[in-house]
Design a protein around this nucleic acid. Sequence first.
DNA 1: CAGGGTATGT
DNA 2: ACATACC
Length: 716
Amino acid sequence: MCRRKTTKMKRSWQEATQDDSDLGEEDIEDWSSVASSILVSPSSKNTPQQAAFSREHPPLESDHSRTIVHIDLDCFYAQVEMIRNPQLRAQPLGIQQKNIVVTCNYVAREFGVTKLMYIADAKKKCPNLVLVSGEDLSHYRDYSEKVTDLLQSEFSSLVERLGFDENFVDVTSLVEKTVPGDQSLVEVKGHTFGPEGQVACICGCHKRMAIASHIASRMRARLREAIGITGCAGIAWNKLLAKLVGEKNKPNDQTTLLPGSEQKLMLSLGHARRIPGIGHSMNKKLESAGIVTIADLQRASYSDLEAVVGSQSATSMKNSSFGIDNTAVTRSGPPQSMSDEDSFKLCASLNDAKERMYNLLNSLLESCRLLDSLPEAEGIYAMLMIRKRWRTPLTIRLTIRKHSSAKKWLRESRQTQIPVSATEQIKKGIFTVHGPLMEVLLVLFKKMVDVEQSFHLTLINVCLTNFQAKSTFSKSLDKYFSKAKNIENERKSESEQGAADICKKTTDDSTNNPKVLTNQQDSNITQLFEKQGRRPLQTASKVLENKQNKLSFFTRKLPSDVKTTSKSDPHQGDGELSQGERDKTATLSRTRYSVEVKNDKPIDKPEGDISSETGPSFAKSDEVEKDFLVVTSSREQTSEEMSSSSHQSLEIPGNVDVTVFKSLPLDMQADLLREWKVQSTRDMAPEIKTSSALSSQPSTSNRRITDFFTRSKETR
DNA sequence: CAGGGTATGT
DNA sequence: ACATACC
Ligand SMILES: Nc1ccn([C@H]2C[C@H](O)[C@@H](COP(=O)(O)OP(=O)(O)OP(=O)(O)O)O2)c(=O)n1
Ligand SMILES: [Mn+2]
Ligand SMILES: [Mn+2]
């Protein structure tokens, strides 16, 4: 089995970089003609159609019915650092993680610095390279989510994230709404890939691609003006081609694939390894079958391929090699796990390991990703604190890497349920559960490491996962929400619910739809936040970070409206905004929690399409505000509220902003109060221990906040 | 020399 | 629990 003595982890990205570097151009001309003749010749044994529809009658043409835009941000980590410190823009900048330049700006690339290069090599290439530490990903994560949220709220709800800097956007319906009924030509905006005088495909795809190119242009303009970030777009009729074609013009540019040029695009890549989905392991298998290039893949017989990689992989790879990809853009939804890790030369004592685990755990619990403890998050609105309790992890995993005498750098992991006591605390917004979690981490640790013997660790990772997606709290608010009909549940059913179950699930009953929840109201409300609102807490916390006092949120109808949230208006003003204006635009335009309120007037207002028009939406926001949840909150008092539940009137939990609360409709206030009263009698914890890190060390708690105000930029 | 995340499949 | 994939 181990004919690969290459240890899998870091070896694989080294090889990946090497793979990247030895990309040679194939003898494209030969094969493009061959391939296109194959395409129209269903008799050939190796056509993609045979693979795709296994031996059935293939369609002779590709499926151009969808329209996909792929966005890839420019030198992402470096760009974020340049936004945070514009001085860096003029200098060659590398982002450092330990001994690696993980990415660098385009100034540095002029010097020959590349992604995933060793520091020493990079400094050789560019002695004046400025290095900024990128080991803390918080800022990158924040910007990443801003980008996804903008795309989702202003262009299409169907957005799929890939890593931190890429998004697939299915704009099919947006394009459809835009296609002019007449026969007017639409010029492609930006670059095209493929010859202009292409054979016309009768399905109208060319026009759709052209319209999408204008949408992509608007996307990039909005990203720049609202967030200040640049990136590349690829426009095509599937994800594979959109991603690949976007790389043809970098940075800060866009490329549209013309129908009929997919063969040329695929063959231009050369190595099969360049196809997304063919990683190191698959590539080795292909090589063992003599398949190296994409042309090899195209001409390989399906049965040979299947023998080596199995039928599923064989089919998808065959298809990919011809640029065929039927996979849907699937909404990413909120994260399913969150982890923190650190690597080091040596960790050989239990105390050292304990301390490192504590720090990782502390980061997870305190950092922005569990925004309950974020003072700025409190002001959002009272209902949001319901949402936050809905996402509490039920599982904790510890991963380590041992430096064993053999050259194996393999990771081992153990996971266990989070103690229900801790889960209960977290649900209440109390995150000082370091003690119990440290205990389980220690148990997990000892399952992997014999602490009586000497050991040598080089990495520790702590991961919280298996988020509970159910409310245990929202009963009294149910009536304020109407049913969220028709929100398709795209996520798989939860196989394990964990011990903290309140609602039993009846998964196997009525529906084929893998609903997680049985309680209908819980389900409805959960869906509102889980499926529709993306990371509303993050977003909202930004609003307040930026010292926006007022926070309004819209009500809107749910199902139909959400599908496509933007009008298409190919001509919108461009123009640079200051950073302050950006913040305003970015944050306000994203106040769009898709909540339908039953008992009120705001929903009755003709609301039109909020998300697409930023200007008008401000006006609407203001209109709505006195009718509904608009909050003016003072941002000073906050910091200790979640640890010391004092300071507020006792009926209100410490993590609820009083001002926000008071802005709620009176009946809603009353319901909440009743519910809290019930809760507090039963679970007012005797010790709400104030963690020193939380209350007396503002610098370590909520590092996002402190970073924001005191942008100390230490490169360590 | 040897990041720091995520998601999904087996 | 580990492998493989993506960034
Ligand atoms: N093995 C990897 C690959 C990527 N990244 C991070 C750093 C990058 O900044 C970010 C995005 O990856 P890209 O491959 O898109 O690279 P960049 O965005 O940095 O550069 P480019 O302008 O070429 O897209 O993900 C990482 O940490 N480790
Ligand atoms: Mn990328
Ligand atoms: Mn990128």
